[in-house]
Design a protein around this nucleic acid. Structure first.
Length: 192
DNA sequence: CTGTAGATCGTCT
DNA sequence: GACGATCTACAGA
């Protein structure tokens, strides 16, 4: 079942990042349906978070969609070659977002293998936000689209992930954020 | 195993 | 003009 708009309007972005673990990300792009179980997330908060693109009320053409109502996709280009996919949350005007950093491939394996240019084995987990976008064919063109629409959405998962299998750590690649880089806002499904 | 260089471009200054 | 919420390959230990 597809997550409804109310889900995305919750105001605790860290709790929401935790809750998205085990949900299923689905894309229907270029006629192919692919999906994966979300295995790693990071929260980016509107308030007091130097790591966020929207830190200190920063608003530009690129990150404007972060200020939209929850339930939109925020995709941006990093290092000139990687599209990073975020879920915009909270009410309009509050730029909270959750970065999806890893998924476990579920539906559409052959298409995914084609996109990656290599074969996938049972229980493979695709790690890294750049790879997730590659696997799911998410690009800059999808920034701003509605997650309750029919191109890109998130469903409730059937797999139960026990909370003791979810590791909580600081976020990755944001050393520039000073003490905010230490915030335990990353959630990872631990190996076995 | 660890460390690092290079790829590559939209966005902001 | 500089720089990333990155990834990969490859060198060295």
């Amino acid at each position: 079942m597809k997550l409804a708009i109310d889900y995305y309007l919750q105001d605790d972005v860290v709790a929401l990042a935790r809750d998205l673990i085990g949900k299923v990300l689905v894309t229907k792009i270029g006629g192919a349906v692919t999906s994966g179980i979300i295995a790693e997330t990071e929260a980016y908060s509107a308030h007091n978070d130097r790591a966020s693109h929207a830190w200190n009320g920063r608003k530009t053409r690129r990150n404007a969609v972060m200020y939209a109502r929850g339930g939109a996709a925020y995709v941006y280009l990093c290092y000139g070659m990687h599209s990073l996919f975020n879920v915009v949350t909270n009410k309009e005007g509050v730029p909270d977002a959750v970065l999806i950093r890893a998924v476990k491939p579920l539906a559409g394996l052959p298409v995914m293998e084609q996109r990656l240019g290599r074969s996938l084995h049972n229980d493979d987990v695709i790690k890294g936000p750049g790879n997730v976008s590659k696997l799911m064919a998410i690009s800059l063109l999808h920034s701003g689209i509605d997650l309750t629409g029919d191109d890109l959405w998130i469903e409730y998962g059937t797999a139960v992930i026990p909370s003791e299998h979810i590791k909580i750590t600081p976020r990755i690649g944001i050393a520039y954020a000073g003490s905010d880089a230490l915030l335990p806002w990353r959630f990872v499904v631990s190996e076995k």
